[in-house]
């Protein structure tokens, strides 16, 4: 069993490349996570991520490196206190 997490990632940096959104969506799919992008600018992106907590951690690690066209300065993580955040799921 692994804790289930729902978090908002506020990603900041040089994010203007058009490859970043599909990259984030693809990386989340590879990890089996749900990802929905709610806000985007060339320097900031907000993504809601849901799934097993350890894989949400792995999503952060992957995004910190990101594609070569993008430079991620920081990822601020915020737990979302809704129903999803209190669930548990099989790892």
């Amino acid at each position: 069993m692994s804790d289930f997490a729902a978090e908002r990632f506020a990603i900041s940096g040089d994010l203007g490349s058009p490859v970043f959104v599909p990259w984030v969506e693809r990386h989340a799919r590879r990890l089996g996570l749900a990802a929905s992008i709610s806000e985007r600018s060339p320097t900031r992106m907000q993504v809601r991520i849901e799934g097993p907590a350890e894989l949400v951690d792995a999503m952060e690690v992957g995004c910190l490196l990101g594609p070569i066209e993008v430079w991620v300065d920081d990822i601020a993580r915020e737990p979302l206190n809704d129903r999803a955040a209190n669930r548990t799921a099989d790892a």
Partner: peptide, 10 residues
């Protein structure tokens, strides 16, 4: 320099 198919963890 792009994680690609790798799945880096903590």
């Amino acid at each position: 320099l792009d994680p690609g198919l790798e799945i880096p963890t903590r």
